[in-house]
Design a protein around this nucleic acid. Sequence first.
DNA 1: CAGAATCCAATTCGATACTG
DNA 2: CAGTATCGAATTGGATTCTG
Lengths: 130, 130
Amino acid sequence: MLSHSQTPEYRQTVTGGSREILDRVGDKWSLSVIGALRAGPLRFNELKKQVTGISQRMLTLTLRYLERDGLVTRTMFATIPPRVDYALTPLGFKLLKPVCELVEWVQENSAEIEAAQRSFDEQTVPVPLT
Amino acid sequence: MLSHSQTPEYRQTVTGGSREILDRVGDKWSLSVIGALRAGPLRFNELKKQVTGISQRMLTLTLRYLERDGLVTRTMFATIPPRVDYALTPLGFKLLKPVCELVEWVQENSAEIEAAQRSFDEQTVPVPLT
DNA sequence: CAGAATCCAATTCGATACTG
DNA sequence: CAGTATCGAATTGGATTCTG
């Protein structure tokens, strides 16, 4: 549960203290969740629908991490049944720009990347599994 | 060993086919290795020195992935002892721009992020470990 | 020198069941 | 509705040993 494991020192290489956010960017679901919140606040189950494939557990965890990093707010309404809204903070919105540029770069260059992967894969003879 | 495991469909959410590169950006060592190669080609053991803390195994794996994605070239010299040079491809250099911008964004906003983390951590009472 | 192979520990994630 | 708790499987990474 949000294990406060201390960051090993070697993570300080090159990327400096930015490891934690890079981990967020690189992890399995954060970008999808942030993307889903672009258009405005969503409730837990709305998010779960939009981010196809995510489990309840991972949605909860991802939201907690994003909240901890100050990228997402969590607003509870003490109604019955309970209702919780998630929304991007100004910081979360600002993060969108560099992240989108990176994603766009990848999309623009995906043809070249995939070509490289194919040519790599064919000379690295796939080991027969027999 | 470079398990050619097929990417599960759910990874196609929001980030589209760019998952593989995002994984590369987010993984533990790729950015450090790319950063080390910025100034020019390096040999295996030179890289190992510059990227403090990386194990032989992870350096090998990371380089293979980067090579497969077309971001790094591997040049072998059939000398004794053998010598292998790694260098960024033009594609690898181009990736540097959006990645650096992201890293810079994080650095510029690290104060705000860390403040958010601290305030989150103190209201989420740390469970005593006794 | 530049790795490949093996083994093991830690982390991550999904499925399922339960709750205020 | 919006979670929490628990478990097991898969993935990831480190340490060590061996090799052309």
